[in-house]
């Protein structure tokens, strides 16, 4: 008879220990890049943060004394992402509503779901090239070529699949009983969706939308083809139709410069980009937890 006590030397226990340690080790290695990247950027970039950074235009490279600030790129990123959101959120939420609420699983909805999945896997540079061919090279937008508007459209293509998918999945999580309850007291389909289903799924949809925005804000490739870059302040509405700077492209441009001042500016911009994306992510989680609490008193 074997003893009931735990025996370290038993081969199954040795094997068990080994695989547990192996998986812990792999998990640690997986998280290492994140930790290193974030700390490196925080240290290198954090040192460059000054008040002028947020207010000045960047100086042209070559002037090695002072690189200036990143105000145009910061505002540009905000403007471009806002344009992208204005396009992608209504279309994406609307498409998600169609998939989850109205479609009956026929070939058309299958085709859309498949298309959305393919779109989600399309490399971001393709979205840039597409908008370049459609808008930039044709000068279709009031004769303007590279523009903040074109940049926003390119990013909206990248946001769309995330928004459609999270809306679709968020709505599918709403129990059917709630829909029946609403329809059972004589609500029309659209009242039910607007007043019952959407508010119930609001939390998951909002989280998905925020994550989509955060992803789009950090994209570089699509902007190189569409918004290009600008050194100058954004002062008015017309500037939407001219080249527009953004944090991501500023990092790309200035990190490649041979001058130290520009490199430092790129570090500072990386710092701000990483911090804002982290903030948005954390904010969306806090927001999710907060609405969760208020919903189920």
């Amino acid at each position: 008879m074997n003893s009931l006590y735990y025996q370290k030397k038993l081969s199954r226990n040795v094997g068990d220990k080994f695989f547990t340690s192996l998986s812990v080790f792999c998990a640690l290695i997986a998280i290492l890049p994140l930790i290193f990247v974030v700390t490196y950027i925080l240290i290198k970039g954090g040192a460059q943060i000054t008040p002028e950074l947020f207010t000045l235009e960047p100086n042209p490279p070559g002037d090695d004394l002072d690189a200036g600030g990143i105000n145009p790129a910061l505002i540009g990123t905000l403007v471009i992402t806002t344009i992208a959101s204005i396009i992608a959120i209504p279309v994406g939420v609307g498409g998600g509503i169609y998939l989850a609420e109205y479609s009956n699983g026929g070939p058309f909805s299958k085709f859309i779901r498949f298309g959305v999945n393919v779109l989600a896997g399309v490399p971001s540079i393709i979205a840039g090239v597409f908008i370049y061919a459609l808008i930039v090279s044709t000068k279709i937008l009031f004769g303007s070529m590279y523009s903040g508007f074109a940049g926003g459209m390119a990013l909206s293509i990248l946001m769309l699949p995330t928004v459609i998918k999270t809306t679709d999945e968020g709505l599918k999580l709403v129990p059917n009983e709630l829909r029946y309850a609403s329809l059972g007291i004589g609500a029309s389909m659209y009242t039910t969706i607007l007043k019952i289903t959407l508010p119930t799924a609001f939390r998951s949809i909002a989280t998905g939308v925020v994550l989509g925005i955060a992803r789009a804000a950090g994209e570089t490739a699509p902007l190189i083809f569409t918004a290009l870059f600008s050194y100058y302040y954004i002062v008015g509405f017309e500037d939407l139709f001219y080249e527009m700077g953004s944090l991501a492209v500023l990092i790309y441009n200035f990190a490649l410069e041979p001058y130290d001042a520009q490199n430092k500016l790129a570090w500072a911009a990386s710092f701000i980009l990483v911090i804002s994306i982290l903030t948005v992510n954390i904010f969306s989680r806090i927001f999710a937890a907060f609405t969760e609490k208020t919903k189920r008193v």
């Binding site: 009983e177 709630l178 029946y180 309850a181 609403s182 059972g184 119930t200 189920r296």
Partner: peptide, 8 residues
């Protein structure tokens, strides 16, 4: 309905 289903 069978299951109580108040609106949230």
């Amino acid at each position: 309905f069978q299951q109580p289903n108040p609106f949230p």
